[in-house]
Amino acid sequence: MAGHYFLRRAATAAISIVSAMTLLFCLIAAIPGDPASVLLGPQASAEFSRQFIEEMGLNRPVYERILLFFANVATGNLGVDVITGRTVSAIVLAALPSTISLALVSILIAVAVGLPLGIFAATHRGSPSDAILAVVSIIFVSMPSFILGIIFLVVFSVWLDWLPILGTGTGLGDQLQRLILPAAVLSLGYIGLLARLIRSSMLEVLGESYIRTSRAFGISNWRITYAYALRNALLPTLAALGMIAGRVLGGAVLIEILFARQGLGTTLYDAIVSRNFPVMQGVVFVVVVIFVLVQLVVELSYSLVDPRIRAKRQEG
């Protein structure tokens, strides 16, 4: 049953989230040494660090901490920021839109540019432009996005003096303007990745016998490429989108820090630098949830879109 499959996948996702956080708690507990002294620094007074340990629940056994965390999560409580006293959920909610919009716009750019490039490369296989595309793609695929970010910063802010590009901005127009550069930086690598992926899956599909049969029937080249081949060639791309979305989320952390945008990444970084443990924990939890959910959605939509996979899963 299809419903059965959905339920099983959703359960696996939930288990992944719980076990991921459990793993994080266990790793933190297993690491030798006193977490309070690492978090507060060696100068902290004994009184303060004892209070801190109690507040963080660090004196409790691991399993109790894990249970407490999930009991709180179930009631929507991610904890309280030890420094400002704000709730972690409020902090995360404030940071979330900027990160989500950065990630979404980057993925949109990557698809909007990478898809046509991939189709072009596949239909012009072996041409000079195909070769140039291959070289440019591999350069951007291999380059870490924060390196590209720094190069862009140097080029646009130091050489060309096109400010303002830093910060999140106020007002819709300003926000969009400041979103362009970080989103472009984040998407460039994935444009290359998608173009390569679509090119190779297009070439594979174009070699199938049903394409040859269509040609024999005299169906136009355009129709074969876009109506018949592309639909099947997009399937592996859809699967890759889950992986890409996850990497974009991780990459956004660095890009946000580079471009001084207020988002999950900067919140996490500030929490780590200021040893703000509850905020760090809350942000990591939210990132894990988003990450796992995106993969779940991609996988479910994959079987929705492709009847062959649906059939296989219903059998098994």
Binding site: I15, I17, S19, G246, G250
Partner: peptide
């Protein structure tokens, strides 16, 4: 497999940041 899923539920840079934050 659950352990593998748990580890790969974190974007790797996030997991690295979270752990380094605690251990120094």
């Amino acid at each position: 497999t659950i352990l593998f899923d748990a580890i790969s539920s974190f974007p790797s840079i996030i997991l690295a940041l979270a752990l380094v934050a605690v251990v120094g």
